[in-house]
Design a binder for these strands. Structure first.
Lengths: 148, 148
DNA sequence: TATTGTTATACTCTATAACTATA
DNA sequence: TATAGTTATAGAGTATAACAATA
């Protein structure tokens, strides 16, 4: 085993433990704010990418078509998205985020950044520097995991 | 606004976006392996800390007592934990992880480390260095968030 | 009376299978 | 026949309220 391999295994073990903790923490923060992970992700996707067909949404979020039908129904009932038809194809349902939906996405994002800012302030400067330096690497890590 | 404050806000925004992506990725990896976040966390806790009373488990995992009763029943049905009594207090239920439960915890941990190692290998060295350097900071970040 | 745990009930979220409507 | 979406049904996972048993 080379030096580089040893470094990778150690880093992997450290990161796995850290990710485990972060997920546990996030599970609890998330459970109390009324929007499931998939619901929040779907709203963000519609906000970022515009209107989408229900089938496309289901595929993009990695859930089945019936699950997306139900999720869209719940979001519609809460006024966060709207259903529309496609004039060119009578079978299609086009989903759009509403103004209140967009507002919710923005509110949640701002709240997350605010909460994270508050926590970062309590960390030593060296930690904040390390985190800032690692953010792009974490993003590329997410790219690679998402590819699989 | 000082330089340091600006750095915190930027880092917070970057990290919030990264965390959002990581959670989305983890949601999908998790949904296909048959054990909920709470179930996995409960097994790990029992593996790490030994037998616990049902009420303690519920508090530690941040769920209600009835929810933990159900979770323990499901885990018991699958042979991953066992229920026992406390001779000193007839009301108490003591939960223990079984040998198959421990084996599952180890298998899942090894699989996570293996998967993460595979991904890290594809990242440039500079990214791996940045991630290794940030791991302790992420752990302290988790400490602070967990406190709240 | 207080604590420990379970049962009853309801809602979200997910899946698969069966169905309807359109192409 | 194939595709888009819904409905039917079932199970995990969560909560609150009501209950039983023990301290």
């Amino acid at each position: 085993m080379t030096e580089a391999d040893a470094g990778i295994s150690e880093t992997a073990a450290q990161l796995a433990a850290v990710v485990e903790r972060l997920v546990e923490v996030l599970r609890r923060l998330n459970s109390r704010d009324g929007l499931s992970l998939t619901a929040a992700s779907t709203l963000r996707r519609l906000d970022r990418g515009g209107a989408r067909r229900l089938t496309d949404l289901a595929a993009a979020e990695g859930v089945t078509q019936p699950a997306m039908t139900q999720l869209v129904s719940r979001l519609e009932r809460e006024g966060l998205v709207s259903r529309g038809g496609d004039p060119a194809d009578g079978r299609v349902v086009v989903v759009r985020v509403t103004a209140p939906g967009r507002a919710l996405v923005r509110r949640r994002r701002a709240a997350r950044v605010r909460a994270l800012s508050g926590v970062l302030k309590e960390l030593p400067l060296a930690d904040r520097v390390a985190l800032a330096a690692a953010a792009p690497a974490l993003d590329r890590l997410a790219d690679l995991v998402a590819e699989r």
